[in-house]
Design a protein around this nucleic acid. Sequence first.
DNA 1: GCCGGACGCGCAACCGTTTGCGTATGGCCC
DNA 2: GGGCCATACGCAAACGGTTGCGCGTCCGGC
Lengths: 370, 370
Amino acid sequence: MLEGLPCGRHADPHAGLAPIGLPPLPDTPGSDPRPTLRTLAERTGLHTSTVSRALRRDRASDPTAALVHAAATELGYRPDPLAAGLRSGRTGAIGMVAHSLTDLAQALIHEEVDQYVLAHGYDVLVAATRDDPEAQRKRVELLLSRRVDGLIIADAHRDGAYADWVATLGVPYVLVMRGAPGHPAITVDDELAGRMVADHLADLGHTRMAHLAGPSWSAASYGRAAGFRARLAERGIGLEDDLVEPGGLHATTGRAAMERLLDRRRDFTAVFCASDFVAFGATSALGAAGLRVGDDVALVGYNDLQAATAMDLTSVRTPQDELGRIAAEALLAAIDGCEPQSRTLAPELVVRGSTAGSGAPLADAAGAAR
Amino acid sequence: MLEGLPCGRHADPHAGLAPIGLPPLPDTPGSDPRPTLRTLAERTGLHTSTVSRALRRDRASDPTAALVHAAATELGYRPDPLAAGLRSGRTGAIGMVAHSLTDLAQALIHEEVDQYVLAHGYDVLVAATRDDPEAQRKRVELLLSRRVDGLIIADAHRDGAYADWVATLGVPYVLVMRGAPGHPAITVDDELAGRMVADHLADLGHTRMAHLAGPSWSAASYGRAAGFRARLAERGIGLEDDLVEPGGLHATTGRAAMERLLDRRRDFTAVFCASDFVAFGATSALGAAGLRVGDDVALVGYNDLQAATAMDLTSVRTPQDELGRIAAEALLAAIDGCEPQSRTLAPELVVRGSTAGSGAPLADAAGAAR
DNA sequence: GCCGGACGCGCAACCGTTTGCGTATGGCCC
DNA sequence: GGGCCATACGCAAACGGTTGCGCGTCCGGC
């Protein structure tokens, strides 16, 4: 790959910081490269090691600590995580690997993780993998080469291979959102959520339902579908294979999935979607087919994002913020040497207008439509 | 703030990584900490400096380079960016500061930036600021302390204070999406976009329009509104102040804004929204008020996200992916010493069903509704 | 009054790479 | 065949912190 020629003036090799006669220019004090431990040491008349310890309140007398801190704030000293990490092995950074931050659910988790660990002096390095195993390996290795102190994995796959590999890396880690057997994970009880949706729709009188499923490699998507199917079966209502369509997680994939489904069948009265965005896409496809959500067909989303409220979509609330916070908490604890504990959070069904109608006369409406 | 006790067993100061007696076995050679330049040097009988140069193909004979590379791949050597950065000042990381990655437009830009710089050997460190000036300063400083080689600023404010400050930092930087006067920026011609929307709606016959505006501190949001208003004026159609409502960028804020607007007026026939999500929220509020998008009232979004396609929403396509890629390109060039060039990308109006009806009889419909 | 231990601090060796400089070697030209 | 330059490589000093170790001092206990 040809590296495009920059544009002429390259970085002046002598421009570094203060290459040669460091102190021939003592008159420009504004360009002090940036205070370092040595600066503080000279300033306070102490040794750099003492300053280092004083800053971390580690075996330092009160007066010394005060002196050092005063000098530090005065000079605006900021420790260099690179140097510290090099020696100590702790970088104060954690890695989070997501399948994509354009998935709002993952972005929300990231946001919360970021907030939480920031308050504890950590930074987050994110990497997106688009669920590609090759990318997962590469990006985790990249994070590792940056020496992150721990990993939050938000894109685990149900076949534990990926998580198993992460576990061998010798770095503290926590899965979030998507679990994998035998690994510490902060998840929502997706199976229960599926059951709740099944009950809700069955209670409304629906007897023929469809499911726009998420990616099968995600334990979260899988759990939803499994719970939904299981509960329907328990109530004597089947979920026909023909009415289950893979729908991804995005609006476009959801629309396409619904279009495929409508090409095949029109006799369902309710649809459970793998995500809110899939539900939006489905809404659009249904509308184009002359079917109205809430009246002609009941629609349930997943995650209860803000947009679901706005769109009057019945959805399952999965507390992303709590997921993120608890995962971050667990990871920091693991970094401090704790055995990380798995947690399963309870989902909550939020009923809105998209499941307002009853399940009775819909087949007719569908038949009459268009 | 009380630091929650980890869980009992604190980090054993002598434990380093392996917590307790995890591997008391020092004879396992598989756990070689990880190959370093010295490892390679001993292996090849060369000096570390030679190895370092050979790896970067800098003044090394062909046979030496081959030897070193062979050893490197055999041992799975990965250079340590921390150590390299410490010495060289270049960390191979760039910083991106966004207002929030839960804003899909920003997430898309981040994704593209990430992809692009990854292919060129860089990592991205993101920071979200929620448009809070305090957070902007803090997080940029954090990025700087991690010694990023450059900055991509996606949350600039129209009052140039923030961008001006960034410019004084002595780090290459590029603004993206939101510009600021006098700074290199990759943006969309938002003013033109506003004009295009105005023309589209005016051509349809609308004469009384509303605007759900984005944050006024964003040059992007501001430009949309300004262009919209200016073009309407040129065509002899006013935009009443009473019909401009601040609507944020999210679905919930959009819904709330539309509700406020509807409380006040119902005689508008078209609404230009600052973002697609605002339009979704507005759709919901309009529906609750008995008004149907496309029939009773025309709705235009902004950004043309996937969901807009799915929801049949007329929108302005602003190529986030190109924005991200070009910004990344510009920043890497700037890091190589080039003067960064600003670029303005052309928006594109994508007409869909939400502006299907004509502007004529809507006031009546609105009046009759409910 | 003496001894032991805790405490505060300095010293110097690291962590893994890069890089200015010095040196030895080889090839080339005259 | 001698002088010269380029080239390939080694040496050691950085970069900015952290940390094991050792020493001196002060304090308390008997």
